[in-house]
Simulated scan of single mutants.
Amino acid sequence: MAQEVRGVVALGVDKPVAVETIVIPEPGLGEAVVKVQACGVCHTDLHYKQGGISDAFPFLLGHEAAGIVESIGEGVTEVAPGDFVILNWRAVCGRCRACRRGRPWYCFSTHNAAQPMTLTDGTKLSPALGIGAFAEKTLVAAGQCTKVDPAAAPAAAGLLGCGVMAGLGSAINTGNVTRGDSVAVIGCGGVGNAAIAGARLAGAAKVIAVDLDDRKLEQARALGATHTVNGRDTDVVKSIQELTGGPGADVVIDAVGRPETYEQAFYARDLAGTVVLVGVPTPEMKLQLPLLDVFGRGGALKSSWYGDCLPERDFPVLIDLYLQGRLDLDAFVSETISLDHVEEAFAKMHHGQVLRSVVIL
């Protein structure tokens, strides 16, 4: 039986979000209904609201979520009612060329729930990243649910659903940071600070945080940065080189995603070092680098999409590390709010006042 719940909807480009009544259908083949307990307010939701991702309004926003599986449809074996899960937007197909080659984190045919969620007048909603979790309940593909230890706090666990996982994975999975490495992270928002935490977790000896805001640099130190550089006051490349004894860092992570920060990352790495782009550029951005420098410096230039994450592999391990006190996910939760305060949370995020506001349901 379909049910009605409250959810946060973006009705048009840059219009204030509204709390509307959402119709959730009974789960069909391969689907699950999840009772959402917590959902982080991510920049991606703001991009949806601004029309920067798609024009398929109205959007049911929210995607960094954790909750309890309420019901499942036919053929679902991954989860059962009562399971505590983190939602993800990477439900892999198991059949594409990436999956067949044993690289499901690159799956080229990920999927979401087949049935739409709607407004009460029948208007179909576009769920953010195929999730739509600024709602009391949501309908997803069962493969978007990853079961983890229920001892984890939902507000912290849900953040692995997007930004924090992207940052952690950019260091651990994409950058392959290992013991003794030097790492620089440019941009210390939620993703950048997660990259810093990931680098320390992987055993990096030196982690250099770069930002224009001293408040963010203080947060970066709390999450594991050993050194900080304010790019407003100093030359970023020279500072990273000096802090690494001259050659530059083994891994430099660009968590901003602008041509100028990517160029800084490129020249701030050691010869044969690695650059990881995890910040998301906008479509009009162009990059110019001397091709001889690309060739002559060697190493690797990588992009990290969702931290090269495989949820069924990564989420349970990271939650275990969190429960052991080795990964401080709670530090990313700046405040908890209700569904009615999402619009204010977007403003705080835009002005850099929070790492994450988290909606508690």
Score class of each variant (00 low, 15 high):
residue 10 A to M: 13
residue 11 L to M: 14
residue 11 L to A: 15
residue 12 G to C: 01
residue 13 V to E: 15
residue 16 P to I: 00
residue 17 V to N: 06
residue 20 E to G: 04
residue 21 T to H: 03
residue 36 V to C: 09
residue 41 V to G: 12
residue 46 L to V: 13
residue 48 Y to G: 01
residue 60 L to V: 08
residue 64 E to D: 03
residue 65 A to W: 01
residue 65 A to L: 02
residue 66 A to M: 06
residue 68 I to A: 14
residue 68 I to H: 08
residue 70 E to N: 01
residue 70 E to M: 00
residue 70 E to W: 02
residue 72 I to A: 10
residue 78 E to K: 13
residue 81 P to Y: 03
residue 85 V to G: 05
residue 87 L to P: 01
residue 93 C to N: 06
residue 95 R to L: 10
residue 99 C to P: 02
residue 100 R to V: 03
residue 103 R to P: 00
residue 104 P to F: 03
residue 105 W to L: 04
residue 111 H to E: 10
residue 116 P to K: 13
residue 117 M to H: 08
residue 119 L to E: 12
residue 124 K to H: 13
residue 133 A to F: 00
residue 135 A to W: 01
residue 136 E to L: 14
residue 138 T to I: 04
residue 141 A to T: 05
residue 144 Q to M: 01
residue 147 K to S: 09
residue 149 D to V: 04
residue 152 A to N: 00
residue 158 G to Y: 01
residue 161 G to Y: 00
residue 164 V to I: 05
residue 164 V to R: 02
residue 165 M to A: 09
residue 170 S to T: 04
residue 171 A to Y: 07
residue 178 T to H: 11
residue 181 D to R: 06
residue 182 S to R: 05
residue 183 V to W: 07
residue 189 G to W: 09
residue 190 G to L: 09
residue 190 G to R: 11
residue 192 G to V: 08
residue 197 A to H: 06
residue 200 R to Y: 13
residue 204 A to Q: 03
residue 212 L to H: 04
residue 212 L to G: 07
residue 214 D to L: 08
residue 215 R to K: 12
residue 219 Q to Y: 13
residue 222 A to M: 15
residue 222 A to I: 10
residue 225 A to Q: 04
residue 226 T to A: 14
residue 228 T to R: 15
residue 233 D to M: 09
residue 236 V to H: 07
residue 239 S to P: 05
residue 239 S to K: 03
residue 240 I to C: 05
residue 248 G to I: 07
residue 254 D to Y: 06
residue 257 G to C: 06
residue 259 P to D: 05
residue 271 L to T: 03
residue 285 M to R: 13
residue 286 K to W: 09
residue 295 F to A: 14
residue 297 R to L: 01
residue 300 A to I: 05
residue 308 D to C: 09
residue 308 D to G: 07
residue 308 D to I: 06
residue 309 C to D: 09
residue 312 E to I: 09
residue 312 E to P: 14
residue 312 E to F: 10
residue 315 F to N: 07
residue 317 V to M: 09
residue 328 D to E: 14
residue 331 A to P: 12
residue 333 V to C: 00
residue 337 I to V: 10
residue 337 I to W: 06
residue 340 D to W: 02
residue 343 E to V: 08
residue 343 E to Q: 11
residue 347 A to P: 00
residue 359 V to P: 06
